[in-house]
Design a protein around this nucleic acid. Structure first.
Lengths: 232, 232
DNA sequence: GTCTATAACGAGATAGAC
DNA sequence: GTCTATCTCGTTATAGAC
């Protein structure tokens, strides 16, 4: 009985994974807007109605793909942040940024899914928020650790932004000073500006040595959030 | 004869404009991936084959929309940069950034078209490059002027990046020091990271006072490219 | 209980004959 | 330029296999 349940559960997991894999291929070929349950079913040798046992709607399949993408990126960032605990905070920051960029370069279409144009007619449910925040949390962690070891540089905080910055800090990192939370959110967005521009072709004809360019920009971002010290 | 030609030319311009306007509405409703000449024709009461007299293919229509979007954004940035010539360089920089953000907030779908995920199966032709560079040129102009008046702060230039930075400067702004060109390209990408995150919903639940937040981030970007002085 | 297959719906796109 | 026949799609109801 429980063995049967186990077998069934295993089969279910496998089919679910196969569906998502094929859907990701479709994503790459046709884009998220044209992701079609029928085409996925066809490629799997199933009938479209059978997919509804696994995903109650096309939008739920999209949501699953989005969450998977955020988690995959988040895991890459977390791994990178954990692998260099011994190094200085700037080096750790750069490692996390480079992990995010590396993931994006090897998962172009999943990146487009989560950070590119919204899919028309689809609105991301609350369920995606947790996964979406993972990279940001890693960056926060780097700054938090740096504060305890090397210390943080002084950061500006315009009077008008103090309430906003304090709310941000309360929500995201209660142990950090508000100006650090503020700078972190900005750096977080700017990081993905760099990655997106490279990925989506805006650097064509402009930036040649993209590895070195990114490393330098990431270093500047690190300084922007108050990290200090050599990046070696 | 020439009057007829004039009338014909005028009609052609009007129809072309109408086609693009309807196409932009489609862009908003269905996304660029699903932009269909047939649907545009239907909405105009024309037959799809008639559209081919104006745009030889769907891709050419897309290209026209992309160039229009870049030009519209570029014009907004240029106007903003020109309107505050008297002010300090930081204020000018912020004005240009805010113009870009303002345009993006009021032209969400056109923004998605040019800075969002690439349209599957479409590759932008060389013809889009000129229009795409306009915002960047305005930012370069602000730094150029600042260099002659208030001067620029010192900027870092890692040894390994010197060749890249010199090539950038040669291509984009031969009168600027290489480290300024480097910082400008990074700031340019980061600016659109901020705008894209706000537009595409990444700031939901994170940034509340978005006007003030953006102004602060833009100020930091200004400092990042070496601009100095008050932002009043 | 859990799954897959058949068939159908209403809507929309598409190709080709006329 | 119009019409029609044939495709696609998401989704549901239903019936039967394991």
């Amino acid at each position: 009985m429980s063995a049967v349940r186990g077998a069934r559960a295993r089969a279910r997991i496998e089919v679910t994974a196969a569906i998502k894999e094929v859907a990701r291929r479709q994503l790459a070929a046709e884009g998220a807007a044209k992701l079609s349950l029928r085409a996925v079913a066809r490629e799997l040798g199933m009938v479209s109605s059978a997919l509804y046992r696994y995903f109650p709607s096309r939008d739920e399949l999209l949501t699953a793909l989005i969450i998977d993408a955020y988690d995959s990126l988040g895991e890459a960032a977390e791994r990178a942040g954990g692998a260099v605990v011994g190094a200085g905070p700037v080096a750790r920051w750069i490692a996390v940024c480079e992990a995010a960029r590396g993931w994006a370069l090897t998962h172009t279409h999943e990146y487009a899914l989560i950070y590119g144009s919204p899919v028309p007619g689809y609105t991301a449910p609350q369920a995606t928020v947790r996964a979406a925040s993972r990279v940001g949390l890693v960056l926060i962690g780097v700054v938090r650790d740096a504060r305890e070891t090397s210390g943080l540089a002084e950061l500006p905080l315009p009077a008008g932004l103090r309430p906003e910055a304090e709310r941000m800090a309360a929500d995201l990192a209660p142990d950090l000073p508000p100006e650090a939370a503020l700078a972190l959110v900005a750096a977080w967005a700017q990081l993905f500006g760099l990655i997106g521009f490279e990925l989506f072709g805006q650097f064509k004809g402009v930036v040649e040595d993209r590895d070195a360019f990114f490393r330098h920009a990431a270093t500047q971002l690190a300084h922007g959030v108050g990290l200090v010290g050599s990046h070696r």
